[in-house]
Amino acid sequence: MEHTADRVAGLLKLLSTRQRLMTLCHLVEGEKSVGALCDAVGMKPPAMSQQLAILRREGAIAARRDGQTIYYSIVDEDVRQIMAFLYSTFCQDKTGA
């Protein structure tokens, strides 16, 4: 149980910043380029790169290069499930519009 508690605490810490939470909310919709994430979250590329580096280091996301464009996606299944719940509860358009 201690190991699980440590893992969950680490995941919650990873999700505890607005920038990373918003980035993961957009990635739960599917793979996105750095530029698309910057536009969606409203961050400049250097700041986004810093947050993406943290998420990659912690194993939550992975990168894929296509030419000069780098795409990111969620690869950690626990992060994907947590973000899917958060997205459906707080982010998804509830009006159906």
Rank of each mutant, 00 (worst) to 15 (best):
I54E: 11
F90W: 04
A36Q: 14
M83D: 05
A5C: 08
M43A: 01
A62C: 03
G42Y: 00
A36D: 15
C25W: 08
Y71K: 12
T69Y: 08
A9S: 10
Q51N: 14
Y72E: 06
E29A: 12
L24Y: 06
Q51F: 03
M83K: 01
T17D: 02
M22D: 15
A62S: 05
T23L: 02
Y87E: 00
A62F: 03
H3D: 15
A53F: 08
R65S: 13
L86C: 11
E77K: 10
F90Q: 06
S49W: 07
R20T: 00
A63Y: 06
D76P: 03
L27K: 04
D93C: 09
A53G: 07
L21E: 13
S16I: 00
T17K: 05
L37W: 00
T69N: 12
A5D: 11
G10A: 08
R57Y: 09
L55G: 02
D93A: 10
V28T: 09
G42H: 02
P45Y: 00
Q51P: 05
R57T: 12
R56M: 13
G59R: 13
T4W: 11
S49F: 07
M48R: 09
T4Y: 08
I61P: 07
L52A: 01
F90L: 06
L21P: 05
E29D: 12
H26G: 01
C91V: 15
I61Q: 10
T89L: 08
L86R: 12
G10N: 07
A97M: 13
L55P: 03
A5I: 15
R18E: 12
D78M: 11
L55D: 03
E58T: 09
